[in-house]
């Protein structure tokens, strides 16, 4: 177990950083900025996960999220209005109810965390955690691991089918809009 005042201080920096960044995601005008804040939040969580001794999970989390944020930023600029955030705009619905739901979720889960009685059985030796995960992946949990692989493969196929060039109503370069929808019509039905 890694411990000490420096570890604690690092933890609080990561923790407060990731919470503030997570909050800023929904309080900024620009979607690209929101993506950067989300990535900062993920990096903070990845840092805490590494501090807790799950080095591999933390590093993979950061690795995965960096790629994802870039794709997210590109998708935003492709499809969303106001991607750069030059015109401030609020795009929320049921704001108050959502805020209440968020606070209720936080209070309930924090209560579970604070009041719950968790057994104190720390990891005996975090330096072998990565090796243990590797043995587990290709040992007892082989079936789970393979199922995750198959799930990812079918996701890839499904995503390519859904987002592919040839849509249900035509090819993407031509007009692939739904026929019942006139080009000028607001599709809010």
């Amino acid at each position: 177990m890694i411990a000490g005042p420096l570890v604690d201080a690092t933890f609080w920096v990561f923790a407060l950083g990731s919470i503030v960044a997570g909050y800023r995601v929904f309080r900024t005008d620009s979607m690209v900025r929101a993506a950067f804040y989300l990535l900062a939040s993920f990096a903070g969580v990845g840092g805490i996960v590494v501090l807790l001794g799950a080095e591999f999970l933390g590093m993979v989390l950061i690795l995965m999220m960096a790629g994802e944020m870039l794709i997210m930023a590109i998708v935003m600029v492709m499809f969303m209005m106001n991607p750069a955030g030059l015109n401030p705009m609020v795009m929320v619905h049921q704001n108050r109810r959502a805020a209440v739901a968020g606070i209720v979720a936080f209070v309930a889960l924090a209560a579970v965390g604070l009041l719950g009685n968790f057994p104190a059985r720390p990891v005996p030796d975090p330096s072998t955690a990565t090796a243990e995960l590797g043995t587990e992946l290709l040992g007892d949990s082989m079936l789970v691991f393979q199922s995750a692989g198959v799930a990812l493969l079918s996701t890839m196929i499904g995503a390519v089918v859904i987002a592919g060039r040839k849509g249900r109503f035509g090819v993407a370069e031509e007009d692939s809009i739904e026929p019942s929808l006139q080009p000028d019509e607001e599709p809010g039905r």
Binding site: G22, F26, V92, G102, A105
Partner: peptide, 25 residues
């Protein structure tokens, strides 16, 4: 402490998932 941080992130996530209009957000 870590569980409270996790709960805070979860709560912010619930707010975002329920309140945002834009698909990406």
């Amino acid at each position: 402490a870590v569980l409270v941080v996790a709960a805070a992130l979860f709560g912010i996530g619930v707010y975002g998932a329920l309140s945002q209009q834009s698909f990406v957000m």
